[in-house]
Simulated scan of single mutants.
Amino acid sequence: MINWKVRFKNRNWVIAFISQILIVAQMVLAGLNSMGLVDFQLTDAIQNSILTLVNAIFVLLSMLGIVQDPTTKGYGDSERALKYKDPN
């Protein structure tokens, strides 16, 4: 069984979950529109507006240090990564 309380405490998981929910919503709307069940279509203007908003949110989260490297504990770089001269 999935422990949702633990998952929602992981910021990386929450960000990925929200983005996946938005992708699924977009796919469902596109499918319903193609079947003629809804008259709502995501135009290029709407998609660009959403993309701009999501990018702005991720930039803000990155600046605050909330979006982090999931391979390291905490928000800093590992001791090994700090010693790199070139990307490994």
Rank of each mutant, 00 (worst) to 15 (best):
M1N: 06
I2T: 00
K5Y: 01
V6G: 06
F8Q: 08
F8M: 11
K9C: 04
K9F: 00
V14F: 03
V14Q: 02
V14N: 01
I15G: 10
A16H: 06
F17Y: 12
I18V: 15
S19F: 08
I21S: 05
I23W: 02
I23Q: 15
V24E: 07
A25Y: 02
A25V: 12
A25M: 12
V28C: 11
L29Q: 11
G31S: 14
N33Y: 12
M35Y: 11
G36W: 00
G36L: 04
L37W: 11
L37Y: 12
V38L: 07
F40D: 02
F40Y: 10
Q41W: 01
Q41M: 01
L42S: 10
L42A: 12
D44L: 06
I46F: 04
I46Y: 02
I46P: 02
Q47C: 07
N48A: 09
N48Q: 05
L51P: 00
L51R: 12
L51S: 13
L51M: 08
L53M: 05
V54L: 13
V54Q: 08
I57K: 05
V59W: 08
S62G: 15
I66S: 04
V67H: 03
D69I: 11
P70R: 03
P70L: 08
T72Q: 11
K73P: 00
G74P: 03
G74Y: 01
Y75F: 09
D77F: 10
S78R: 10
E79W: 04
R80Y: 08
R80I: 13
R80T: 15
R80D: 07
R80P: 03
A81G: 08
L82I: 13
K83S: 06
D86A: 15
P87M: 10
N88E: 06
